[in-house]
C-alpha cells in the first residue's frame, strides 16, 4: 500500500516519462475501471509473505492463544492439534516425511511460519472466516507454533519476530524438475509378459451403486453416506432389540413457533456448516435420535450452551459456533429452529 502511494507521488513529481518507462511493456490502454484508493487496498490486502511483508503491527501470546484455540479450533483440529476425524492434523509428525504414511503438519512440513498467520487470517475458523482480529490471529499462530514445540509457553509473537522463526522443514522444498520421466514410443515387444504382475483393487471402498446393483459400497455423496451409515446402525439395532427406530422427523408434522421460523436464515448461513451434516460430533438437523437427549433438558440451557459454548461428550460447541458476529437473539432463534425441526 505504501509503495503504491509512494509511486503515485513519484509520478506526480517526476512526470509522465517515468510512468511509461516503469512498465514492463507498453500496451494500448483502455482506461477502464477506477483507480483503487490506498484505503480500499488496505481492506483487502490481507496476504503475508515469508519475509514478513504484509504483517499488521501488533502481536499475541501463546497463553491467550490457548484460550482462543480451545474455543474456536479444538473442535476440528483436536486439543493438541492431533486432528479430529479427517480434519487436518496441526502438530506432530516430525521425522515422518520419509515413512510410508507421512504426517504432514505445520511443524513437520510447513517451510514458513508466515503461512500460518496468512492462512488463519484468510480462512479460519472454518465456520467464520475473516472474523478474527489481527491480535487474535497472532495469538492463534503463536499457539499452533507452541503445539509444535517451536516456541515456549511464555512466547509472544509479533510482527517483528514472526519472520525470524525458523521452521524445521524450511529447506525441504525444491523447484519442480519435470519432465522427470522419459518414456519412449515403443510399439512391439515393449515388456516381458513373464515378469508382469497384475494387481486389482481393494473391494468395497468405491461408490459403485450407480452401476453395480446391490453392491455393498459407499454412497457417492457425503449426505448419502451418512444416511447409509445411519440406516445400517438402525438395522443392527432393530435386529438386536426387535424395535423399529424412528429416524427422520416427518416434515409435515413439524409446526414451528415464530421464533423457530425466524431462526431458519441464521441456521442456513451459520449453523448449517456443522449441524447440516452432523460434522465434528454436532447433532444434525432432523436427526431425532441425536437431538433427543438435548431436547429433554431445559431449552434455556441449550440456548445458553449455544451462546457461551459447551464441551460435551461428542464434541465441542464453540461460543455461537464461532460466529461471534451473531446476536444472542439470532443464536436463540436458530436453536429453536433446530430443536423444533428435530423432534
Amino acid at each position: 500500500m505504501f509503495r503504491s502511494l509512494k509511486n503515485t507521488l513519484l509520478v506526480s513529481i517526476v512526470g509522465a516519462t517515468l510512468f511509461v518507462s516503469s512498465s514492463v511493456y507498453a500496451g494500448e490502454k483502455y482506461s477502464f475501471g477506477k483507480t483503487a484508493t490506498s484505503e480500499e487496498i488496505a481492506g483487502w490486502d490481507i496476504d503475508i509473505r515469508p519475509d514478513g511483508k504484509g504483517l499488521p503491527d501488533g502481536g499475541g501470546s501463546v497463553e491467550d492463544g490457548e484460550v482462543l484455540y480451545e474455543q474456536l479450533c479444538a473442535t476440528c483440529h483436536g486439543l493438541f492439534g492431533e486432528g479430529e476425524a479427517r480434519w487436518p492434523v496441526l502438530a506432530g509428525g516430525v521425522g515422518t516425511l520419509t515413512e510410508e504414511r507421512p504426517t504432514k503438519t505445520v511443524g513437520s512440513y510447513w517451510p514458513y511460519a508466515s503461512t500460518l498467520y496468512d492462512y488463519i487470517r484468510r480462512a479460519m475458523p472454518f465456520t467464520a472466516p475473516r472474523s478474527l482480529t489481527n491480535e487474535q490471529t497472532y495469538q492463534l499462530t503463536a499457539y499452533v507454533l507452541y503445539l509444535n514445540e517451536l516456541v515456549d509457553e511464555d512466547f509472544v509473537l509479533t510482527h517483528e519476530n514472526l519472520a525470524q522463526i525458523e521452521m524445521p522443514n524450511k529447506d525441504g522444498f525444491f523447484i519442480d524438475p519435470r519432465p522427470d520421466v522419459k518414456n519412449i514410443r515403443c510399439m512391439k515387444d515393449c515388456d516381458d509378459p513373464s515378469k508382469m504382475k497384475i494387481e486389482g483393487t481393494l473391494k468395497g471402498i468405491t461408490p459403485v451403486g450407480h452401476f453395480i446393483e446391490g453392491a455393498d459400497a459407499p454412497a457417492a455423496s457425503h449426505e448419502g453416506q451418512e444416511d447409509l451409515e445411519r440406516e445400517k446402525a438402525h438395522a443392527r439395532k432393530a435386529a438386536l432389540t426387535g424395535e423399529e427406530v424412528q429416524t427422520e422427523a416427518a416434515p409435515e408434522a413439524v409446526k414451528m413457533s415464530d421464533k423457530a421460523i425466524a431462526g431458519e436464515d441464521t441456521f442456513d448461513n451459520a449453523c448449517k456448516v456443522c449441524h447440516g451434516s452432523g460434522i465434528a460430533g454436532s447433532p444434525k438437523l432432523g436427526d431425532i435420535e441425536a437431538w433427543a437427549p438435548r431436547v429433554k433438558q431445559d431449552l434455556a440451557v441449550l440456548v445458553e450452551h449455544a451462546i457461551k459454548g459447551f464441551s460435551g461428550a461428542s464434541g465441542i460447541m464453540p461460543p455461537k459456533g464461532g460466529r461471534v458476529d451473531l446476536s444472542d437473539q439470532q443464536v436463540e432463534e436458530a436453536v429453536y429452529y433446530m430443536v423444533e425441526s428435530s423432534k
Binding site: L97, Y109, W110, T115, G172, F173, F174, I175, D176
Partner: peptide, 15 residues
Amino acid sequence: TSKYTDLMEDGRARK
C-alpha cells in the same frame, strides 16, 4: 506449501 507440493521418497518435496 502444505498442499500442492509433491513429497518425494527422500522426504523433500517439489514446489
